[in-house]
Amino acid sequence: MAGQLAYRKWPFTLLEASDKVGVAWRNHYDRLHLHTVKEHSALPFLPFPADYPTYVSRAELVTYLEQYAHHFGIQPRFNQVVTSIERTRYGGTQPGRWTVQTTTDTFIADQLVVATGYNRVPNEPQLPGLSTFKGDVIHSRTYRNGDPFRGKQVLVVGMGNTGAELALDLYEHGAEATISVRGPISIVRRDVLGKPTQPTAIFLNKFPNWFYDLVAGISQQLTVGDLSAYGLGKPKYPPSRLIREFGRIPVIDLGTLDQIKAGNIAVAPGIRQINEHLVTFTDGSQRPFDAIVLATGYRPALYELLEPELAARVLNERGYPTALWYDQPGLSGLYFLGFSTPLTGILRSLNINSGLIADHLTRQSTVPHVL
């Protein structure tokens, strides 16, 4: 978003909660690479360096983000942890500007872009008996690599993209990994016959949903197959419909599935009870574990930032914004970026949507004061 505004020479203030650019990417697990190809994953107006691989690594992305900020002269206000967002009023009920309160300062703006993303706060469910477990319990946010778990029995709770990859990383570091999966998992291969699948998804996205779903379903049958025999179930709907209607992102497989089929990574159902060293699953089976990794995802937690009346107007039942912007009275000048997860690639979507927001934003104001 900052790149879009800087490119248009539109003044803005960028608030960053940490003390560095790209702090989230600096702290992700070591082996992480983008699951989308670099041609569709760069930020606006600055491609990735030519010598970067097709799938950019975590460290390479951090370097790119630093270079991006330098290229566009982006100077964030660091250590500004936002605590509340509300609409000010010019006396009576006349809508005014946006007030953003941080732990140290107050900022006022005519236009406000909330770009905190859908993964701002770790989701750490209170599993039955988890507090009694005697082994190590960590959220995937603090996982770096499988070295500390070598030779140990490790339960990974959740099989999203992170859970699937951490289970693979644990196996490759000599741990005995089990993934707890509550229901059917939609899995798509990152590459088919050595070719990335993302460009195909982008091409199919031009067609009606029913055609996309038909082709995606056939492709999934041919490349993944029915995984019921491996404890992963068979989703009722194709990947695109799961995203559109239920917000469920498919797992982009990087090799976990082959290790499950080979018997090197175990799959267990949902958790019924956790004891000091033993976990009981919903099918009645029990297994001992030395450590538990919560790959249970994140949540946007916008209810914690937006005043209640505002949150009720702009968020859906899952806590996500319902639009990129709102033209209704009392909501004009408010924008949201980074809360969608399309099959065609999240970074590609950020690129497109940030451009739409920047165009709308610059048309709406003649005296810009953007936050």
Rank of each mutant, 00 (worst) to 15 (best):
A175K: 06
E176Y: 08
E176D: 13
E176T: 15
E176I: 13
E176G: 00
E176L: 12
A177H: 11
A177P: 13
A177D: 14
T178R: 11
T178G: 05
T178K: 09
T178F: 10
I179L: 11
I179Y: 09
S180K: 11
S180N: 09
V181G: 00
V181R: 00
V181L: 04
V181F: 06
G183L: 02
G183Y: 05
G183S: 14
G183D: 12
G183P: 00
P184I: 05
P184S: 12
I185F: 00
I185V: 15
I185L: 09
S186C: 04
S186A: 09
S186N: 03
I187E: 03
V188C: 04
V188Q: 10
V188R: 04
V188H: 05
V188D: 07
R189N: 11
R189K: 08
R189S: 12
R190S: 12
R190P: 04
R190Q: 10
R190E: 10
R190Y: 01
D191P: 03
D191F: 14
D191T: 15
V192S: 13
V192T: 15
V192P: 11
V192M: 15
V192C: 14
L193K: 12
L193G: 08
L193F: 07
L193V: 12
G194T: 04
G194M: 05
G194W: 10
G194D: 06
G194K: 05
K195S: 04
K195V: 15
K195M: 11
K195W: 15
K195R: 14
P196I: 02
P196F: 07
P196N: 09
T197I: 14
T197Q: 01
T197E: 02
Q198Y: 04
Q198M: 09
Q198V: 13
Q198L: 15
Q198D: 15
P199W: 11
P199H: 07
P199C: 04
T200P: 03
T200G: 10
A201S: 07
A201Y: 14
A201T: 09
A201F: 14
A201K: 11
I202L: 12
I202V: 10
F203T: 06
F203M: 10
F203Y: 12
L204I: 00
L204R: 02
